[in-house]
């Protein structure tokens, strides 16, 4: 087994690109993403405790709170951040439905909504269950659920 003390050089696959990074074993993925080397600041710190979801990214297409994952755990995994969304329908849907105000929670909600829309099953119960992982203080949540539902049903039809 590889020893994990001191800085580790590793390759991460982020938004389809192989990126070389040097990380400490105790470093969270959120920290690595936002650091000077990668500069992917779309994922936001809101609590760094798993409560708010502002830091959500996708790991193997599933939403994960990047403040709750150590970078060393995701070497070799496929990581998608909000910067990796290229004209995903969820982005325009958020604009059309007014699903953000300050925008700080938006990256996280976008990632959850996008991942959900790629799932085979996204009925109302599942939608609520997935979106409950994140917090928005500005909107009423109706805008966000409307946007996500619109994208999910578009994909269905």
């Amino acid at each position: 087994m590889r020893s994990l003390t001191g800085p580790q050089a590793m390759t991460l696959t982020i938004n389809g690109d192989a990126r070389q990074v040097v990380v400490y074993p105790g470093e969270t993925l959120l920290y690595t993403l936002r650091g000077d080397a990668l500069g992917l600041t779309g994922a936001k710190p809101g609590c760094e405790n798993g409560d708010c979801g502002a830091c959500t990214v996708l790991i193997e297409q599933m939403p994960v709170k990047s403040c709750m994952v150590l970078t060393v755990e995701v070497e070799g995994s496929d990581i998608t951040t909000v910067e990796g969304l290229q004209h995903a329908p969820i982005q325009q849907a958020f604009i059309d439905h007014g699903a953000f105000q300050c925008g700080y929670c938006t990256s996280g909600f976008l990632m959850v909504g996008h991942a959900l829309s790629q799932q085979p099953d996204h009925d109302q119960g599942r939608l609520v269950e997935w979106l409950r992982s994140n917090i928005c203080r500005c909107t009423s949540y109706q805008e966000i659920t409307d946007a996500v539902r619109a994208v999910c049903s578009e994909i269905e039809s």
């Binding site: 951040t81 909000v82 910067e83 982005q91 958020f94 953000f100 925008g103 990256s107 976008l110």
Partner: peptide, 8 residues
């Protein structure tokens, strides 16, 4: 804001 490019 929907691309992660909004800077805080």
């Amino acid at each position: 804001k929907v691309t992660g490019r909004a800077r805080y």
